[in-house]
Simulated scan of single mutants.
Amino acid sequence: MRSELITVRTGSRPTVRDITAEAEQFVAGSGDGLLHVFVPHATAGVAIIETGAGSDDDLLTALDAVLPTDGRWRHRHGSPGHGRDHVLPAFVAPYATLPVLDGRLALGTWQSICLVDTNGDNPTRQVRFSFLSG
Results as ranks from 00 to 15, higher is better:
residue 60 L to W: 03
residue 116 V to K: 12
residue 92 V to M: 05
residue 16 V to C: 08
residue 130 S to R: 00
residue 4 E to R: 14
residue 65 A to W: 09
residue 69 T to L: 14
residue 11 G to P: 07
residue 64 D to V: 01
residue 22 E to N: 04
residue 8 V to H: 00
residue 122 N to F: 13
residue 126 Q to A: 12
residue 26 F to A: 09
residue 123 P to A: 08
residue 55 S to N: 09
residue 73 W to G: 00
residue 66 V to E: 00
residue 85 D to C: 11
residue 79 S to A: 15
residue 75 H to P: 05
residue 74 R to V: 04
residue 29 G to R: 12
residue 103 G to N: 12
residue 53 A to I: 05
residue 98 L to E: 04
residue 40 P to G: 06
residue 89 P to G: 10
residue 34 L to C: 04
residue 67 L to R: 06
residue 62 A to I: 15
residue 67 L to V: 10
residue 63 L to K: 02
residue 82 H to D: 05
residue 121 D to N: 07
residue 113 I to D: 05
residue 2 R to L: 14
residue 97 T to D: 14
residue 12 S to D: 15
residue 44 A to R: 04
residue 33 G to E: 02
residue 13 R to K: 15
residue 58 D to S: 01
residue 70 D to C: 02
residue 56 D to G: 03
residue 72 R to D: 02
residue 23 A to K: 01
residue 53 A to C: 13
residue 125 R to E: 05
residue 35 L to F: 12
residue 9 R to D: 12
residue 42 A to P: 07
residue 63 L to Y: 01
residue 29 G to D: 15
residue 33 G to T: 06
residue 25 Q to N: 13
residue 8 V to F: 01
residue 121 D to F: 09
residue 74 R to A: 09
residue 125 R to W: 03
residue 107 L to Q: 08
residue 45 G to R: 13
residue 8 V to I: 14
residue 118 T to Q: 07
residue 66 V to I: 15
residue 40 P to W: 07
residue 9 R to T: 14
residue 107 L to H: 07
residue 46 V to F: 10
residue 60 L to N: 02
residue 4 E to A: 06
residue 76 R to H: 14
residue 70 D to Q: 03
residue 28 A to G: 08
residue 55 S to I: 04
residue 68 P to I: 07
residue 3 S to Y: 02
residue 41 H to T: 01
residue 76 R to Q: 15
residue 119 N to R: 07
